[in-house]
Design a protein around this nucleic acid. Structure first.
Length: 920
RNA sequence: GCCCAGAUGGCGGAAUUGGUAGACGCAGCAGACUCAAAAUCUGCCGUUCGCAAGGAUGUGCAGGUUCGAUUCCUGUUCUGGGCACCA
């Protein structure tokens, strides 16, 4: 009997589907385990070999946990709102709902072929009204909540209103500040609009003005991705910043809790560090500088108040409100010119191109609050409006960017750190003794920080302040294919819809082009917009809205009363294992953590961190191949010979290339323009150029898993993806080598079946040597699976099967256990062979074999002996030998004796049981 | 520019806590079986010197710590991911 993988896999998949074997119940006596993949965006290109990497890993782990006796939730769904579907609609006129539906069908059929154990009854799609009803509902909860700074948690806005109406908002100490503080009487006298504006400043989902990338020519707002060198990617039109009303999530309110929460999570240190850096908590002071001849005041934020006497200039962000107010008559023209220049620059460019120093003097001077020194005020693009106060005090001797700026514009530099500063570059030390620093003279900088802040507070010119680099998260998109906001604007007041009116369905549109004045496509639907006496919000929610809470919906996907019942979320709890790429490190993973905390604060779920453990799968890159076309001709020159020609490099479909050798016949058939191409070959072959890039359809470097499953089977494909290397590591895809894994499965098959004799497994009792192999394998597979080292697990299987083949061991007692171990990795062949062994139950529910130590442990081991640090010999020692016995053995060893020449060793060191060290 | 990773034979990778570098697989070479092919099996396989035994050298690069470093530290180069409207 041969290994007919196609027949075997189809029949088992049908059987499992028909029997709903992957159906998961919320009601079980077994302990629960929740394994989650980051759900995919269903792109038009379909699944490529990069997608399943994490899915296979999570599938293996789910099946392993099931064998270990857990009730495992392992769901899958689709993050189906997003820009690509909308752009495709713009190009082809096909409605995103249609293409999305089609793409999901393709994804599902592709996933099913690989044999995942998803409970499809729990599938979710973020673009289904039945799902986004609850995304909108949670948005309303965010809108109707505020962050209480005393209790450090979200509370209903009603509580805030009640507080304002009864106690007002008064400062704990000091004088009330107009516009910020008010009494209860004042609050009650405010107009509805005034009250709403104040509340808006506290809501967790709030509306405010913010800047967007605006492209006049396209009449639309663009993503940073769509802006290249200040021009739109499509069409190359100029792009500039524009202020628009936007929705935001007040994630900054949760900054501290997001930081603290990290301590409790099993995320990699690098992941935690990325999140910490993103949040960017810093402690410093906010202080005010008076401006000469005006009443205006510049507020700066600094982490180094100790350097206050080294301030040689102030820099404002070009967008800073004060710029227009303080600019002098003679500097007006250059400032305007500079502002025009900055408008065309993206944030990314402004931060990245530091070598190119730009800036402009405003003509105004600030006064140093301590010694009254005149400080010129500049504007420069390296200061960003969104961070701190949008203004900095520049200390050239201590900050490299300030130093370069001063050098470039010939601004005199004050040295406050003596010989720590060499006038060649800045020195950001905190260990210098301050000079030229007034009341701080002679004080170590580290100590001066606190002294300076105290003085600043004393003088009432500033205060201690904690600052975060993280900004509130922009939550509106001027797009069509997203969740509509359940909000109506009336008299410039945002009125939320009521829960009972949800979902607010995304209306059907004929055209996907932008609305007037940069609004989204929904603004074109006049009837829809002018809802009951107001105007509907026309922007939609961003991609991360639906993905910020989807892990909760899987727990209770059918619920029509609430997004997820408390009973279901209490049963499943946190996601025990979350697998996905690092590209989501600071986006999705922070947003979903914040949403979870809000829902927890409001008492709707019982945990405040969504993901207990996170494993990051590496990205599988494409291995692109190029042909080199000689400019202006239809002749292609082989890679090794291209130096002599002027060539254009064209991507060629990797599936037409064997290694780097082009299949010329296939290439000629590929596109009509290549039909009569000619080639300059090297050694009779056309060799392609190669490069590693992101896998993408347009680069013709995608490999479709369907083809591989068809050719080698799902089990081979699964094991090969794991065998490629560690799950966490990024690597280019290479199909070479899949044969080796396929050979392994065929070899396994031959342990059970013979071509002529048929079934050859026996009921014989296993020998000790055979049991040793089995038990070593059990131990290794268990360890490897637990630590996600699936690539070495595959090697372990290979070694085991090779050894059993060499011993001609076909014993059921042993093979049966091996199959259970293999089930998570290669479920189909395991089920088939399990069946052949005459088992009536399902191998998917078998119990994971118990490792029996007595067959595993080698009673003796070879230890390397190092004498004076040089490796000299090996010595065989029983594992349970005492130290005296080891020493005796050691000294009896010929090589050791020779080396010692009769002398007694000075010292014998046992290094962690792995190595013996003799010092003479 | 900033933040986070990674770099080991012709290739993918292994070495779990600092202890005999290169497990396992691919490719390659030699052989067995076969009329032949496929399939299968056996042996070799970092570089270098050597008939061999054996020696030298070797984990991106330059240093350091250590009896001992792929592993720890400092610096550096290159590659990948992220940088707030791609998902």
């Amino acid at each position: 009997m041969e290994y007919e993988f196609r027949k075997i896999e189809t029949s088992w998949q049908e059987k499992w589907n028909a029997g709903k074997i992957y159906k998961v119940s919320n009601d079980s006596t077994k302990p629960k385990y929740y394994v989650l993949d980051m759900f995919p965006y269903p792109s038009g290109a379909g699944l490529h070999v990069g997608h399943p990497l994490g899915y296979i890993a999570s599938d293996i782990f789910s099946r392993y946990k099931r064998l270990k006796g857990f009730n495992v939730l392992h769901p899958m769904g689709f993050d189906s709102f997003g820009l690509p579907a909308e752009q495709y609609a713009l190009e082809t006129g096909q409605h995103p709902a249609e293409t999305t539906k089609k793409n999901i069908a393709t994804f599902k059929s592709q996933l099913d072929k690989i044999g995942f154990c998803y409970d499809w009854d729990r599938e979710i799609r973020t673009s289904d009204a039945g799902y986004y009803k609850w995304t909108q509902s949670i948005f309303l909860k965010l809108f109707n909540s505020y962050f209480c700074n005393t209790e450090k948690k979200a509370l209903p806005v009603e509580a805030l209103i009640h507080k304002y109406a009864t106690k007002g908002a008064l400062p704990k100490t000091g004088e009330p500040i107009a516009g910020t503080h008010f009494t209860a009487e004042q609050w009650n006298a405010f107009s509805k609009k005034e009250q709403e504006d104040i509340l808006m400043k506290r809501r967790l989902a709030f509306s405010a003005y913010g800047e967007v990338n605006w492209c006049e020519a396209l009449g639309t707002v663009l993503a940073n991705d769509e802006v290249v060198n200040g021009l739109s990617e499509r069409g190359g039109h100029p792009v500039e910043k524009k202020k628009m009303r936007q929705w935001y999530l007040r994630i900054t309110a949760y900054a501290d809790r997001l930081l603290e929460g990290l301590e409790t999570l099993d995320f990699s240190d690098s992941m935690k560090e990325m999140q910490k850096n993103w949040i960017g908590k810093s402690e410093g002071a906010e202080m005010e500088f008076n401006i000469q001849n005006t009443k205006a005041v510049v507020k700066v934020y600094t982490t180094r108040p100790d350097t206050i006497f080294g301030v040689d200039f102030l820099v404002l962000a070009p967008e800073h409100d004060l710029v227009k107010e303080i600019v002098s008559a003679e500097q007006k023209q250059p400032i305007d010119a500079y502002l025009t220049y900055v408008k065309s620059r993206s944030d990314r460019e402004r931060m990245a191109e530091v070598k190119q120093i730009t800036g402009c003097f405003t003509g105004a001077y600030a006064l140093n609050p301590f010694d009254g020194k005149l400080i010129p005020i500049w504007i420069a693009e390296y200061v960003l409006a969104g961070y701190g106060t949008g203004a900095i005090m520049a200390v050239p001797c201590g900050d490299q960017r300030d130093f370069s700026f001063a050098k470039h514009f010939n601004i005199p530099i004050t040295n406050i750190i003596g010989n720590h500063f060499n006038r060649e570059e800045a020195n950001p030390t905190k260990d210098a003794i301050l000079e030229n620093s007034g009341f701080l003279n002679g004080i170590l900088m580290k100590d001066a920080i606190g002294i300076a802040v105290n003085k600043i507070e004393e003088h009432g010119i500033g205060k201690r302040k904690v600052n975060y680099r993280m900004r509130d998260a922009g939550f509106s998109r001027q797009r069509y294919w997203g969740e509509p906001f359940p909000v109506i604007w009336k008299d410039d007041i945002a009125i939320p819809l009521e829960e009972k009116d949800l979902p607010l369905e995304l209306p059907f549109v004929e055209k996907y082009g932008p609305g007037p004045d940069g609004e989204g496509p929904l603004a074109n639907l006049k009837d829809w917009v002018s809802a009951a006496g107001g105007r509907r919000e026309t922007s939609t929610m961003p991609g991360y809205a639906g993905s910020s809470w989807y892990f909760l919906r899987y727990m209770d996907p059918e619920n029509t009363e609430t997004f997820c019942s408390r009973k279901a979320s209490d049963y499943w709890g946190q996601v025990d294992l979350y697998i996905g790429g690092t590209e989501h490190a600071v986006g999705h993973l922070l947003y979903s953590r914040m949403w979870t905390k809000v829902l927890f604060d409001l008492g709707l779920i019982g945990f405040d961190e969504p993901f207990k453990k996170l494993v990051n799968q590496g990205m599988i890159q494409g291995s692109s191949r190029f042909v080199h076309r000689i400019a202006g001709e239809n002749t292609f020159v082989s890679n090794g010979l291209k130096a002599g020609y002027e060539t254009n490099d064209l991507h060629v479909d990797v599936n037409m290339v064997d290694g780097v050798e082009l299949n010329i016949t296939a290439f000629k058939k590929w596109k009509p323009e290549f039909a009569d191409a000619t080639f300059i070959l090297e050694e009779g072959k056309y060799i392609c150029g190669a490069e590693t890039e992101k896998m993408s359809k347009s680069k013709y470097n995608t490999v479709n898993p369907d083809d591989l499953v068809m050719k080698f089977g799902a089990d081979t494909f699964r094991m090969y993806e794991m065998f490629l290397g560690p799950v966490e590591q990024s690597k280019p895809w290479d199909t070479k080598g899949i044969e080796g894994v396929h050979r392994f499965l065929r070899k396994l098959w031959r342990l059970f079946n013979d071509e002529i004799k048929g079934n050859i497994w026996t009921e014989e009792k296993a020998t000790e040597a055979e049991l040793k192999i089995l038990h070593r394998t059990i131990k290794k597979i268990e360890e490897d699976t637990e630590r996600f080292s699936f690539n070495t697990a595959v090697s372990t299987f290979m070694i085991c099967v090779n050894e059993l083949t060499d011993l001609k061991c076909h014993k059921k007692e042993l093979l049966e256990k091996l199959l259970i171990l293999l089930t998570p990795y290669a479920p189909h062949i395991s089920a088939e062979l399990w069946d052949q062994l005459g088992n009536k139950d399902s191998v998917l529910d078998a119990a994971f074999p118990v490792f029996d130590g007595k067959y595993l442990v080698e009673s003796t081991k070879d230890y390397p002996v190092s004498i004076n640090g040089k490796l000299r010999t090996n010595i065989v020692i029983a594992l349970d030998a005492s130290q005296e016995e080891v020493e005796k053995l050691l000294l009896a060893n010929e090589v050791v004796q020779k080396w010692l020449e009769g002398k007694a060793p000075k010292k014998i060191i046992f290094v962690k049981g792995k190595m013996l060290n003799v010092v003479i």
